[in-house]
């Protein structure tokens, strides 16, 4: 299919910069002013490759003044491999910004929990929170010390940050959900700190999200989770990207990951039906 010139919300973007974080993971900066202008944390873009369908990738950060967006991509198959192999100057067709992101409205304190590449969308949220003078805590989960991503940048993002590692060697020995529990218990004041308007946002592997959602529910803290689903259009027209949620009657209903999501209120997600989703 031919690559498009932008009309509507399909844009022709250029890769302004590519940095390999490790052999499997790259940070791409896209020159895409129309996307950067309106992007908000938790939203994503649909990128073209030589494969048939586009690939959904979260927006890691947006520089509205420069007209660029950053994307963090981990090679997981042929499409993402092609994307991390692209050199600066490569043209790529992009649709976005898409979906409903994290809501920071009425948030006095933000606790962001990210696991592995799930940290990428969380970065944008923490940057926005800083701009809005919201107090922030980051819990960043990694498999091991060797597998940390963007450690310096993450350290400077939040007022307080805890790096956890399953293998030990970082601030906390254990997974990010355990680190969250310990962090919440340590703060002597009311759950989530002292504001009473705390919110947890989280992105990463489904078992982590589910554990974080349970902790948030147990403490009565609102929680936004960013979910993944196999997508075709990414723009809400095909109903391909169903995420199971519980409707008011407690029945399973399907919402579009690309349109009602990818960020969902954790208390609505039908976690038992989430296994094996992608």
């Amino acid at each position: 299919m031919p690559v498009l010139k932008g009309k509507g919300f399909v844009y022709q973007a250029t890769i302004a910069e590519k940095i390999l974080l490790d052999p499997q993971t790259a940070l791409l900066t896209l020159d895409a002013p129309a996307v950067a202008r309106t992007a908000s944390p938790g939203q994503f873009v649909q990128l073209s490759t030589s494969r048939f369908l586009r690939r959904p990738i979260s927006i890691l950060s947006a520089d509205r003044a420069r007209g660029t967006v950053e994307l963090g991509i981990r090679a997981a198959g042929t499409g993402t491999e092609e994307l991390i192999g692209m050199a600066a100057g490569t043209a790529v067709s992009v649709i976005g910004p898409l979906g409903r992101g994290f809501s920071l409205e009425n948030t006095g304190e933000l606790i962001a929990v990210g696991g592995g590449i799930g940290l990428f969308p969380v970065i944008f949220a923490l940057e926005d929170a800083k701009r809005l003078s919201i107090k922030t805590t980051l819990i960043a989960g990694f498999r091991s010390e060797a597998q940390t991503l963007l450690p310096e940048r993450l350290r400077n993002l939040a007022d307080r940050s805890v790096f956890s590692s399953d293998a030990g060697g970082l601030d906390f020995h254990g997974n990010a959900a355990e680190a969250l529990s310990s962090e919440l218990s340590a703060s002597a004041e009311s759950p989530g700190g002292n504001s009473g308007r705390a919110k947890i946002i989280t992105c990463g592997p489904v078992p982590l999200l589910r554990a974080v959602a349970a902790i948030a529910a147990g403490r009565g803290i609102p929680c936004d989770v960013s979910l993944e689903s196999r997508m075709a259009c990414g723009i809400g027209v095909c109903l391909g990207c169903a995420v199971p949620v519980l409707d008011r009657a407690g029945e399973i209903a399907y919402e579009r990951c690309c349109y009602e999501g990818p960020v969902f209120d954790a208390s609505r997600v039908a976690w038992r039906n989430m296994a094996g989703l992608v």
Partner: peptide, 8 residues
Amino acid sequence: AGNPPPRV
């Protein structure tokens, strides 16, 4: 409600 995912 439609089918459970993955659908595509």
